[in-house]
């Protein structure tokens, strides 16, 4: 029984990788990550003298700073921000096509005819996507962490922990892609809704300012409710920076409330898929 579940889950995950490979998604990510690693490796030249930073060279410009630790953390934070922002857009764009493809007529019937539970098929595909993006996040993060550590001798773990938060945020967006994919079976709609959520989270981050512009209490309550109900990408981005910089976290509320949103989407997607006719 357990063996059968492992065999089926592995097949679903490997299939996601095969499809991503055929669509050149893996290679695209790998190429971007490698370019970023090489870029950092070639342009950053740091000289340490007796544990103190002597010079830092960026694009041939040499500067001096006393705090090596601070510099490394800032470099980590810069890379983490790129991965969290730009990388997230790419990841959603790439993954949005990988989930709805299994609902194509002629393909879904064959999957459903196999002795696999429906939720297993869906979550297997979700896990495959998540693993794919996890590898594409951890590859540059680990490589850059090693490069910075090797060049400076500073091995702060915040950068590594921060990448888990990036993956977490992607997992939440992927659950949205999954729900929309099951409902509308369209990669385009799934992408649009997910990007829409990203934009809304930026707007709702400024809820205090927006509330001042609203005249009715009801409107203000709606804005506040939306803020608490929807993913808080900007807040989590700030937490990510605090983790990388080694600063204390004021509140984990954005993380757990966003996790709750993701779980609701995931459960909703599974529920609809279980009941749907193909």
């Amino acid at each position: 029984m357990a063996n059968r579940v492992v065999v089926q889950t592995s097949a679903l995950i490997v299939d996601t990788f095969r499809e991503a490979s055929a669509r050149k998604i893996i290679w695209g990510f790998f190429g971007c990550s490698t370019a970023l690693i090489l870029f950092v490796l070639l342009i950053v030249k740091i000289d340490i003298v007796a544990g103190t930073l002597a010079t830092v060279t960026f694009f041939g410009n040499t500067g001096r700073t006393q705090d090596v630790n601070q510099l490394v953390r800032q470099a980590h934070a810069g890379v983490a921000a790129v991965l969290y922002g730009f990388g997230m857009l790419l990841a959603v764009l790439a993954s949005a096509g990988l989930i709805p493809t299994i609902f194509e007529p002629g393909r879904i019937e064959l999957l459903l005819s196999k002795p696999v539970e429906r939720y297993h098929i869906l979550l297997g595909r979700y896990a495959g996507n998540l693993l794919l993006i996890a590898l594409n996040i951890f590859y540059p993060v680990l490589a850059l962490w090693i490069i910075f550590g090797w060049k400076t001798g500073i091995w702060t773990p915040g950068f590594l922990w921060g990448s888990i938060l990036t993956l977490f945020m992607f997992a939440v967006y992927l659950s949205v892609v999954l729900l929309i994919g099951v409902l509308w079976e369209s990669a385009v709609v799934a992408t649009m809704v997910t990007f829409g959520l990203m934009i809304i989270s930026v707007i709702l981050y400024n809820r205090v300012g927006i509330a001042k512009l609203l005249s009715s209490e009801l409107s203000r309550n709606i804005v506040r409710s939306l803020y608490y109900a929807l993913p808080k990408a900007v807040d989590i981005g700030q937490i990510l920076r605090q983790i990388v910089m080694g600063q204390p976290i004021e509140s984990w509320m954005p993380v757990w409330s966003t996790a709750l949103f993701g779980l609701v989407c995931l459960a909703g997607g599974v529920y609809v898929f279980q009941r749907k006719n193909y």
Partner: peptide
């Protein structure tokens, strides 16, 4: 689920993944 274990199925208009 066990009811589908002994079944082999070839759908009409199948779309096997071309990759």
């Amino acid at each position: 689920r066990p009811a589908r274990q002994p079944i082999g199925y070839l759908p009409e208009n199948h779309r096997f993944p071309t990759y």
